[in-house]
Computed example of a mutant assay.
Amino acid sequence: MTAAQQPEQPAESLRDLAQQEAVLKLLAERVAAAQKDVKKRVQAALDTAEKRDGTERVGAYLPTGEQVATISLRKGETGPVVTDEEALAQWVRKMWPDEEWTETHVVRRVKPWKLAELLGELEAAGVAKLVDKATGEVLDVPGVTIKPTRARTHAITWRPAGRNATADAWRTGALAGQLAAITAGGEK
C-alpha cells in the first residue's frame, strides 16, 4: 500500500483539545490552591504534635488502610544574615585595614568570598561575634544577626508502590470524597 493509499488518520478535534486544556488548567489551579492550604494545615498540626508529644512524622493512608507515604517534620535552620551591609563592611575594614577584603563603590561592601568565610565562622559559633585572633577579645560583628534562614517545613516520602496505589485509588473513585472539595466551588 502506498502513502497515497493509506487510510487517513482522523485529526484531533480542536474543540476537544481546547476543552481538555481548559479542564486541566482549572484542575491544576484548584489542586495548587488545595495543596497550599493543606500543606499549611499539616505544618500547623505537625508543629502542635511535636510540641505536645514529640511527634515528628505521620503516615499517609488510603481509605483501604494501605500506607502510601510518610510525612516528616523538617526543622528550620538558623544562621547569620547580613542586615546592615555598610556597618559590616566598615567593621571588616577596621579589623583588617591592610587586607583588600572590601571594595569601595558608593558604599563599602565586603567581597563575596570573604563574606561567605565570615558568615561561615559566625554560623559555626551560632552568634554574631568573632574572636580577635591577635588579642583574644570577643567582638560583636555589626550588621549581622543570627536568625532563621529556612522555615520549618515537612516532606512527603512515598513508599515504593505508594504513588501507583494512590493513582489507582483516584482512578477507581476510592478518593472521591477527599477530591470532591478540589472541584467544588465557584468562580474566582
Rank of each mutant, 00 (worst) to 15 (best):
G59N: 12
G54K: 00
A49L: 01
W170C: 09
T166C: 07
T83R: 06
G185L: 02
Q20F: 07
V38R: 14
A89V: 03
D132V: 01
E77K: 13
L115Y: 11
E21N: 14
G79K: 08
T145C: 03
R108F: 12
K40V: 07
A134Q: 14
W101K: 08
R74P: 03
D84N: 04
V144S: 02
K75L: 07
A165C: 10
A28R: 15
E85V: 00
E86W: 13
R150F: 04
Q43E: 08
K111L: 01
L130M: 03
G186F: 02
L17D: 09
G65C: 08
L119E: 02
G162V: 01
A4W: 08
T166N: 05
A69T: 00
Y61F: 10
A134H: 12
G59C: 07
G162Q: 05
L17P: 00
T145D: 11
G120R: 02
A34S: 08
S13V: 00
S72K: 14
E187W: 05
G177L: 13
A34W: 15
G126M: 01
Q19A: 07
V82S: 05
W158N: 04
E86C: 01
L17S: 03
L24N: 13
R52S: 11
G126F: 03
K114A: 08
T145P: 00
A167H: 09
L115Q: 15
P142Y: 09
W96C: 07
E21R: 15
V23S: 08
